[in-house]
């Protein structure tokens, strides 16, 4: 059996159990509608312009946040990773900021930025900058000195060694960071829409449906859409990564499984 089908067995099993618990009456179908019903609602939603607009708004905020994360984390990671004095002087600040859950900042963000798209982009950026940043810093620490010596022994300057050895070495690690960041940014984007009372976005749709009509099938349909988007993003990034970094130990080990 091809791995694709084998992977789908788990998903199919999950839907079967979900369907089953509703049918035998283990849970109230109004609080947990069966997947067959949710699927029907979902198809209906995909035909609604307002819902599609919500999905686009969420994806756009997510993409912008991720773009800013990359734009900040890559140069910052390279600087912090190659300048030990800069790193030690910012260590305490970074270690203080990093563990703060982004959603804990929502009140602060609502007060300062409001609850529009800026808010979710800011928070998603804040949450997703760390994996890329730290992966780059650690990857720079991790370069084999012999590789650097080899480049130096061919008469390359420090700057050239950084460009021709450090950058390619760091790339797969930064990419793994990006994959983590992409998932985190999506979670935080939707959560912020949900918690900060955004006007538009899948998170806003979910909470509005729940408050207004208590329609659990709409709520679940929205959740399924986000889950599916997250799956596609991760799968796409993983495949692209395996193609780009075939030489890397980490991706090769993953590709074999």
């Amino acid at each position: 059996m091809r791995p694709v089908y084998r992977n789908l067995i788990g998903l199919a099993g999950f839907f079967l159990i979900w369907e089953g618990v509703g049918r035998v009456g283990l849970v109230d179908p109004t609080s947990l509608p069966p997947p067959s019903e949710v699927a029907g609602t979902l198809v209906g939603l995909l035909g609604q312009e307002s819902f599609i607009r919500d999905v686009i708004a969420t994806m756009l905020a997510w993409l912008i946040a991720l773009g800013i994360s990359i734009a900040v984390a890559v140069p910052a990671g390279l600087l912090l990773g190659s300048l030990p004095w800069l790193r030690s002087s910012t260590r305490v600040l970074i270690e203080f900021l990093r563990p703060i859950p982004p959603v804990a900042l929502i009140p602060l963000i609502i007060l300062t930025i409001g609850s529009g798209p800026d808010a979710k982009i800011t928070l998603a950026f804040y949450a997703s900058v760390w994996p890329i940043l730290f992966n780059i810093i650690y990857a720079l620490d991790d370069i084999d000195p012999l590789l650097l010596d080899t480049a130096r022994s061919f008469g390359n300057s420090r700057a050239r060694v950084l460009a021709t050895v450090a950058l390619p070495h760091v790339a797969p690690f930064a990419y793994t960071g990006l994959r983590l960041s992409a998932a985190i940014a999506l979670i935080v984007t939707v959560s912020t829409e949900y918690l900060a009372g955004s006007q538009i976005g899948v998170g806003a749709f979910i909470i509005d449906e729940y408050i207004a009509i208590g329609g659990m099938d709409e709520v679940l349909a929205g959740t399924v859409v986000i889950g599916f988007v997250g799956y596609l993003v991760n799968e796409g990034l993983e495949r692209a990564g395996n193609r780009m970094f075939r030489w890397s130990d980490t991706t090769r080990a993953e590709a074999l499984t």
């Binding site: 012999l146 590789l147 080899t150 390619p168 070495h169 970094f245 030489w247 890397s248």
Partner: peptide, 9 residues
């Protein structure tokens, strides 16, 4: 150490 001195990429 050839394995550490060749550029894997």
């Amino acid at each position: 150490d050839y394995s550490r001195s060749l550029f894997p990429w």
